[in-house]
Simulated scan of single mutants.
Amino acid sequence: MPRTLPPEILDHIVDNLYDEPIALKACCLVSKSWVERSQRHLFACVELDSIAGSSVESWMNAFPDPSALPARYARSLGVRDPGVAFVNVRAWIRSFRRVEELSVDMLGSVELRGVSLLQFHGLSPTLKSLRFANITTPTPEIIGLICSFPLLEDLSLEIISESDTDGWAAPPTSPKLTGSLRLNGKNRSVVRGLLKLPNGLHFSKIRVLCHVAEVDSRTIMDLVSKCSHTLESIHLKYYTPTSTTLPPLDLSNAVKLKYMRFGWGGADIRWITTTLQTVRPEILQQVTVVLNATPVYIPTEELSWDWHQLDHLLVQLWTAHSVVPRVLYEDTRERFLHLLLPELTRRGFVKGKRQ
């Protein structure tokens, strides 16, 4: 009888503890042969968060030799530390060469303009998901960074300071970008940069959440048009003064569009209706309108007419094409909704978000 279990069985035991960090740390103390397998799970997701006390500097102090870092096991890396803008961390950052997900949040560095992210350039050839938040980096550098990851699919951008792209030349090659795109904040220049990418845009999901003052409706239209043959889901949430009128999006060429979601933060209801009128109803499966803090007190005649038009259109899409309408609300003024959306309310399509 063997005194020890076969290595394959021991590996299987450790693998089943992938979400038990305390047990994995104990495994590291059992035997030297267990360390590597345990570290694969312990360091699969690394968060360098200065607010939580796990800064880039503390990581460097814990692992002074970049060549011996457990970063090679990381598949997901999150950096929420403005210190990367000041400290030369290139050697340590480059050790995360196998990550598939990268998130960089420069919260706390708002006063910094033009913070460089060159230390992340081409970090991992296997990267598929990239998220930037609270970024003040110049747009050409952001686009260049995006193009340094050939397998990139999903992209999330929250830009708080825009820069001019005039005179900027697009890189010779770019990733296919076949996954999801999320835009939040100031996006005019970065969208213009994305539209110039040589391999085009092929996003299947687009989500735009921003104030109308930070939106260039023309570039958003161009963005949707570029992805019209691959787009399956679109989520739009504009915060806009009631005096501002946006031109509707033209989704007539979106040949795969199945899901639409509108977050109403004061946006023109008529804009939602006219945008919906451009879709291909035979393909569409679901339309969701989320009413957050609905600024409706006593509906005027004009406002009631706009809501009734939306009500009629959504019911028509349901009865004629089986497109499922959903209206979700989260405020204290739901008593007006049966007046504004009578047919949808009667059919049970208007519900509170917590129901």
Rank of each mutant, 00 (worst) to 15 (best):
G348Q: 03
K196W: 05
A91N: 11
P325T: 15
L107Y: 05
R98W: 07
V208N: 06
G185A: 04
Y73R: 10
R207Q: 04
V89C: 12
T274A: 03
C210I: 05
C45G: 00
V87D: 03
D81P: 12
F96L: 11
G265V: 05
V287Q: 07
L340W: 09
G53D: 02
F349N: 01
P150F: 09
N199P: 02
V224R: 02
L317R: 07
R188K: 13
S109F: 13
P281C: 04
I13Q: 06
H312S: 14
S148W: 01
T242H: 12
R37H: 12
R270A: 05
L69F: 03
T332E: 06
K32R: 15
R192V: 04
V84C: 13
L337H: 03
E57N: 03
D164W: 05
A213I: 13
L209I: 12
T275I: 02
Y259I: 14
Q119R: 12
V115I: 15
P66M: 08
G200R: 08
L328Y: 02
I135G: 02
Y18P: 00
A169T: 14
E302Q: 13
Q316M: 14
S322P: 05
V323A: 07
V290I: 07
T242F: 10
P172N: 08
S109P: 11
V79T: 10
M260K: 11
P7A: 09
L195V: 11
S243M: 01
L310T: 08
T4S: 09
V324L: 14
Y18K: 15
V110H: 13
P140W: 05
L69N: 13
S304T: 15
L209E: 09
K186Q: 15
S217M: 09
L181I: 06
A85R: 09
